[in-house]
Design a protein around this nucleic acid. Structure first.
Length: 322
DNA sequence: CTTCTGCCCTGGGAGC
DNA sequence: TGCTCCCAGGGCAGAA
C-alpha cells in the first residue's frame, strides 16, 4: 500500500536507474492501466517514444518523470504514475521477462526496462501536461540522485518543468516531508490554521491530499496512535500543540519507514528493484487487531470509518464526547 | 457553499 | 472443487 515513503523509495530508485535513458518502446497490456489519456494508449506511447528521462520527481503519492526531446529541450509533458494500492515500478536490466500482473512495459534504447506491475489496477500511468501548481510553489520533491550528481534542493536552470507539475497533481498539496512544513516554520503554522479552519475529524483531514499530501490509511493510524489522538477528534477543537503532535508523529513515522525502504505486507508492494520493504514489522496499530498496544497493553481494535478500517488503542486514544 | 456518503475499479483469501 | 462474500484505498459523483 504505497504511501509517501514507498513512493519516495520508488522515485529514488528510478532516479538512480533510468535518468538519461531514452525511451525506445512502449507496450500497454492493460488499457485501464493508462488512465485519463486523450487518445488512449496509442497516444500514450507516441508521446513517450524518443523522449529522454531527465529527472524523477514526487509530490505526495504522485511520482513523475521529467522528459526532454532529442534536441535536449524539456518537453511540456511528463510521465506520471500513481501506484494506487498495489502498483509497482520495477526496473529490469535484462530483456524479456514476464510477470503475472505486468500492465505496461517501457523499454529503453539500452535494453533496460521499466515495468508497471499492478495486481488490482487501481494505479495508473499517464503522460500529462505540465501546469503551474495551485499553491504557486515549485513542483515537487526531486531529491538526490547518484546518477546525475544532483543534490537535494539544487534546481538546475534547464529543468524548467520542475516549477510545474502534471495536471492531475495541480490540486495536490505539498507533503509532510517537505521542508516548508517543518516544525516551527511559518509553513507549519499556516498548515495548522488550515487544518483548524473547519469542523472536520482529524483523520479525514490527514487523508485529504489537498490539505497535506502523502498520508494514507496506514500512516494516519500510526500517527494518531503515537500522538494519542482519536481519529474522530474535531480539528477545530484541537489545540495547536495537539495538531503539531500529530503532524510530528506522522513526519516521524514516515521518515522511519523511508529509512527502511517503505512498508510492505506481502508481495503486493516491492520497491523499484523488487525488494520488499519491511517497515510493517514496526507498525504499532495498523493491521494489529487483537494484539496488544505496545504502549499500554490494551487490545488494539478495528473500527469502520470513512468506509475503511481504523485501528486504534481505545485506552490511549479516547473517543471525543458527542 | 462545504462536508460527507456511497460506490467503483480488481483479485485473492476465507468460508461454506 | 467452485461458488459467494468481503476486503483493500483513492477519487469522484452526487447527496445532504
Amino acid at each position: 500500500m504505497p504511501e509517501l515513503p514507498e513512493v519516495e523509495t520508488v522515485r529514488a530508485g528510478l532516479a538512480d536507474h533510468v535518468l538519461g535513458r531514452t525511451i525506445a518502446g512502449v507496450q500497454v497490456y492493460r488499457e485501464r492501466a493508462v488512465r485519463g489519456q486523450a487518445g488512449g494508449p496509442g497516444a500514450f506511447a507516441d508521446l513517450l517514444l524518443g523522449a529522454r528521462i531527465r529527472a524523477a520527481v514526487r509530490r505526495g503519492k504522485f511520482c513523475w518523470l521529467i522528459l526532454e526531446g532529442s534536441d535536449g529541450e524539456p518537453l511540456d509533458h511528463a510521465l506520471l504514475a500513481h501506484l494506487g494500492m498495489s502498483g509497482q515500478l520495477l526496473v529490469r536490466s535484462n530483456p524479456g521477462g514476464e510477470h503475472k500482473h505486468l500492465r505496461v512495459r517501457i523499454t529503453m534504447t539500452d535494453g533496460s526496462q521499466v515495468w508497471f506491475v499492478d495486481q488490482r489496477t487501481f494505479g495508473y500511468l499517464q503522460v500529462a501536461e505540465l501546469v503551474p501548481t495551485l499553491d504557486g510553489l515549485p513542483g515537487g520533491y526531486w531529491g538526490a540522485s547518484r546518477s546525475t550528481g544532483l543534490n537535494e534542493g539544487e534546481l538546475p536552470d534547464q529543468l524548467v518543468p520542475l516549477s510545474s507539475v502534471p495536471f492531475p497533481v495541480a490540486h495536490i498539496a505539498r507533503d509532510l516531508l517537505d521542508p516548508v512544513y517543518a516544525a516551527g516554520t511559518p509553513g507549519r503554522a499556516a498548515l495548522r490554521r488550515r487544518m483548524r479552519a473547519s469542523h472536520r475529524e482529524i483523520k479525514r483531514v490527514l487523508l485529504d491530499q489537498t490539505v497535506i499530501s502523502g498520508i494514507g490509511n496506514i500512516y494516519a493510524d500510526e500517527a494518531l496512535w503515537r500522538a494519542r489522538v482519536h481519529y474522530r477528534r474535531d480539528t477545530h477543537k484541537m489545540r495547536g500543540a495537539q495538531l503539531d503532535a500529530v503532524l510530528d508523529a506522522a513526519t516521524a513515522v514516515m521518515s522511519q519507514a523511508l529509512e527502511q525502504g517503505g512498508t510492505s505486507f506481502d508481495a503486493l508492494y516491492v520497491n523499484v528493484n523488487g525488494a520488499s520493504g519491511y517497515f510493517d514489522r514496526s507498525l504499532a496499530v495498523y493491521g494489529q487487531r487483537d494484539r496488544h498496544c505496545p504502549r499500554c497493553g490494551a487490545m488494539i481494535v478495528r473500527e469502520a470509518f470513512m468506509n475503511r478500517s481504523s485501528f486504534l488503542c481505545r485506552r490511549c486514544q479516547r473517543r471525543p464526547r458527542g
